[in-house]
Nucleic acid binder design. Structure first.
Lengths: 241, 241
DNA sequence: GCTCGACGTATTTTCGAAAATTTGCTCTTG
DNA sequence: CAAGAGCAAATTTTCGAAAATACGTCGAGC
């Protein structure tokens, strides 16, 4: 689920062919999932042991992650997991809305039949997984990753035809950033408390998009803002805001 | 002019304290200025000799530059300067407009007296340099860098109070990307042909901004689009678009 | 004449140790 | 008792060489 889609590094992506690439993917996954908590220092020796790598590929991966705002560093004091804060979450959310709104508008303008088919397919695949999980009752980690993957695909499909490599890449980056605060929340177990009907929201967004209605943009923005609100409410912050 | 403003890496920026940082700055400058042409492969051995460094800091710098779209790489085939194309320029321009329009709107909403003063000061400093250059008649490289620096500062000042670290960082990144095609054009010598009154455009943008008029956003977008058009027209492209 | 494989070279990627710098501690001094 | 100098240990950063991989050339086979 992690380093897959939306990375323009290796032509048609795939398995990490380089140790640096693998370090990047594993580190990113560990940060997103919360294995390394926000603010925690990332000591090179520890990482070297954990992943069985040498310094060079690790530093390269950390450098990359820093550019993506998952890691921060100070000159000679090493790296640490980028901190989370209310304002960071809000900034990420609003930026994501800005990017994806524009991308969605353009997609609706350019989108052809394949584009529509892609959206419908992704939506269906997402719902299958949701159903499967609802029936099973339990939440395996593997299921969760499958969910995330399909959720991501759905949102990618919406904006796929915006015809801007930059917007697509930014959207992917922001997806990962927001994953960082969505995922720990799932694990945290406030799952039952969720009165939210995400499937309905997704369907509404899809319908409006296929209709080429500007409502789609509004619904998408609401979707993201609601998510952010739920997350912010479910975390007790060290120092307010 | 290069690695200075807008980099959140070392608290209050400053001199490169690390070789990796210095490699990053020098490489970036060489790419932006056109020392390394678009598409040109960046051989590590050559870079090692040129900068007198070892592989590790070089690779780190290249990794960073790749995240900023100045460099591209393929798994085991090394790095090269990211290619330029009409569509890349257009994408960069339109993305920049999207980002800075939003940032400008927010700045106009939040901006206080200090913000206004910063804009006026930056505008004045920019004009001083323009005047100095007009009088001198010649274009030293150093003057050009001073110009770029002040130009950058002016555009930063406009959006400085948008209250979004992400938007500011994206704007800075896109500034550098567009620098890449603006600068070689200056050197190229089509300078005399420029019928454009950039100073007037800047003044109009500033005035509208201080008035908190939505015209500011339109003027800014026009400003960037016009720049892109001029550049695109002045380059003969290998394969059309 | 063309394709394909083997081989030597060029280049990238990774490693482990050396150098440089920070951090924490102790001991002095005022 | 606070402030600071001086060390030792921990950590990051850099290096140069070793390993892995891609590239180009040449020759054999069809």
């Amino acid at each position: 689920m992690a380093g897959a889609a939306g990375d323009r590094r290796n032509a048609s992506e795939g398995e990490p062919v380089t140790l640096g690439e693998s370090a990047y993917q594993r580190l990113r996954a560990d940060i997103v999932v919360g294995t390394f908590k926000a603010g925690e220092p990332l000591r090179l020796e520890a990482l070297r042991q954990r992943y069985g790598l040498s310094f060079s590929p690790l530093r390269e991966a950390l450098m990359r992650l820093q550019s993506e705002r998952l890691v921060s560093s100070t000159a000679l004091r090493g790296f640490s997991v980028a901190p989370l804060s209310r304002s960071e979450i809000e900034d990420a959310t609003e930026t994501r809305i800005l990017i994806e709104s524009e991308a969605l508008r353009r997609s609706m303008r350019n989108g052809d039949d394949d584009w529509e088919a892609g959206i419908v397919a992704a939506f269906h695949a997402l719902n299958l997984q949701v159903e499967r999980q609802r029936v099973a009752g339990t939440v395996e980690a593997a299921d969760l990753f499958a969910m995330e993957e399909r959720h991501h695909h759905f949102h990618q499909a919406l904006i796929a035809h915006c015809n801007s490599p930059r917007l697509l890449e930014l959207a992917d980056q922001l997806y990962v950033e927001t994953q960082r605060y969505r995922l720990p929340n799932y694990f945290g177990g406030t799952l039952g408390k969720r009165r939210r009907d995400a499937a309905a929201e997704h369907r509404a967004i899809m319908d409006a998009t296929l209709r080429r209605s500007d409502d789609a943009v509004r619904l998408l923005a609401d979707h993201y803002r609601k998510t952010a609100e739920i997350i912010e409410a479910s975390i007790e912050w060290p120092t307010p805001k």
